[in-house]
Design a protein around this nucleic acid. Structure first.
Length: 274
DNA sequence: AAGGAGCTCAACCGCTAGAGA
DNA sequence: TTCTCTAGCGGTTGAGCTCCT
């Protein structure tokens, strides 16, 4: 076997976007020999890539299970919920979203959620922002999922990035115009009463979560105190997880929202060892 | 139509944990 | 116990795309 010096190997390593040919080589090799030993994969497959790069490409792009495309409403809700519990544990969160990669979720969080925090002029880890998610966005999302199901649409209807009911730019701007959210003094807790009516049950192109949401009586009193979404620190989580909100109404999510997975998620979310 | 700004996402980097010698 | 290797994780970057003016 040819022995090459480290420098020779390093100089030979290719970086940047993968070509179709490289993808085909990697896919073929992994399908034949299986995953693991990524440095060996790179070497024996004849790819001028690091093992790390091969692993990443396979896991995030080439794996057959990888779901590509827009994040659905339910996925958004799960991401918000799980992030509130685990923080930036992307791979852990990704385990609860079959087919989604940690990278994808991380990107979603950074591009959509953090952007909102920025527009609200508050830190994404601040209590203010967390409360906004907790009492405004998540109930709002749940409401929209319910509404979509009620209207006979699949609740897991993917949300196009240009039509994102949560973070769509145009929606955000409309919501900002309506509510003055860019002004920290008009944050949801104090502004919900003056915001526009939230009774639009349809999934409109306008931001769903940055619109107003009038919490059910008592909800603003704290987690789990109202009839709406209450899944933080878990009073009421049983209701949430067993409700129709989290049961598949469409075809594409059969594998995710089956009984077993709902049970598993319920177990996870009721686990105090977060 | 053109240029700039902003956004998305694939890919890289550095670090850490775990396994095995 | 220590060292090395590997896999995995989270943070960051930058190319390409879209939108706005």
């Amino acid at each position: 076997m040819e022995i090459r010096s480290e420098n020779e190997v390093l100089a030979d390593v290719k970086k940047g976007p993968w070509t179709e040919e490289e993808d085909a080589v990697l896919r073929s090799y992994v399908e034949t020999h299986g995953e693991g030993r990524w440095n060996s994969v790179a070497y024996f497959a004849g790819l001028r890539r690091t093992g790390k790069s091969c692993r990443l490409r396979w896991l995030n792009y080439l794996r057959p299970q990888v779901r590509r495309g827009n994040i659905s409403l339910e996925e958004q809700l799960i991401i918000l919920e799980l992030h509130s519990r685990w923080g930036n544990r992307w791979s852990k969160i990704a385990k609860h979203l079959p087919g989604r990669t940690d990278n994808e979720i991380k990107n979603y969080w950074r591009t959509r959620v953090q952007k909102q925090a920025k527009q609200m002029k508050c830190d994404v880890n601040s209590q203010q922002f967390r409360d906004t998610m907790r009492y405004e966005w998540m109930p709002r999302l749940a409401e929209r999922i319910r509404a979509a199901e009620f209207k006979g649409q699949p609740a897991c209807l993917p949300v196009s990035s240009s039509n994102d009911p949560i973070f769509d730019n145009r929606g955000v701007r409309m919501a900002e115009l309506e509510s003055g959210w860019k002004d920290p003094s008009l944050m949801p807790e104090v502004s919900s009463g003056i915001l526009s009516d939230s009774s639009d049950a349809q999934v409109s192109p306008v931001s769903g979560l940055t619109e107003s949401y009038n919490p059910p009586d008592g909800l603003t009193g704290g987690p789990g105190s109202g009839a709406g979404y209450s899944g933080w620190d878990m009073p009421g989580q049983e209701d949430m997880m067993s409700s129709e909100l989290f049961l598949d109404g469409g075809d594409s999510w059969d594998s995710l929202w089956n009984e077993e997975n709902v049970w598993f998620l319920r177990q996870q979310l009721s686990d105090d060892h977060f």
